[in-house]
Design a protein around this nucleic acid. Sequence first.
DNA 1: AACCAGGGGTACC
DNA 2: GGTACCCATGGT
Length: 258
Amino acid sequence: MNIHVKEFDIKKIADSGQAFRIVEESPGIWRTVASGRVLRIDESAPHIPEGFWSDYFDMETDYSLYRAAIPKQDEFLTKAAQAGEGIRILRQDPWEMLITFIISQRKNIPAIRSAVEALCRLCGSEIEGEDVRAFPSPEQLCSASEEALRACSLGYRVPYIMKSARMVAEAVVDLELCRELSDEELFDELLKFPGVGPKVANCVSLFGYYRIAAFPVDVWIARIIDQEYGGNFPLQLYEGFGGIIQQYMFYYGRFRDE
DNA sequence: AACCAGGGGTACC
DNA sequence: GGTACCCATGGT
């Protein structure tokens, strides 16, 4: 049983900077790993199973309603939203997002991918019949040695990751209970982790907790706001779903020249 | 409030 | 094959 797939582009999602384990395994066939499961998607005939995966890919949401809020006079966003049609905000695992976005600081996307993959190979669980491993649990990560973590190209982030993993393993911060918090409370809670500042807390909120009002500002978004909006982006036009608009901006900012 | 941090990816030569 | 520059930043 499959739901009707529309406004879904796995290739764009793989390049959107929210998920780092989606790879083109063979031409046109994409493989993704989440919560210890593997799914393969044919980009020309996408087929999303009901249940876990349709929830993960947020298939119930109609993104055209969000794009409709963009004023026609806003040429940049109009083009960005057009170029980004098919991108969805994935409902990813908060723990995986926490560690992934601590890793992300001052790395480019290919470097984030390889570091995350190295971490999974180091201490993630095997997945039956697959070459890839699951993202490691907090306990698995805690059991890894500092030297082994350094070999994953994590650099100065190693202590942040080790301390954050311990905080989750010891439930100093309960990432599941955090689902009950308001956006502001969640943001403050995430800031308690070492290596997590405003940018990373917003990314974890948006991609790990589906807080679509969160609006992470990285170098790309800052550049766009500066160059296209004279330093003043009208975020109030998109109250409650700025994160979705941000995703179109990010994607278009990176790929409009290709 | 400047300044620094690992080092990988990439474009260019 | 060398090198210069950039990178979904945060801590000090």
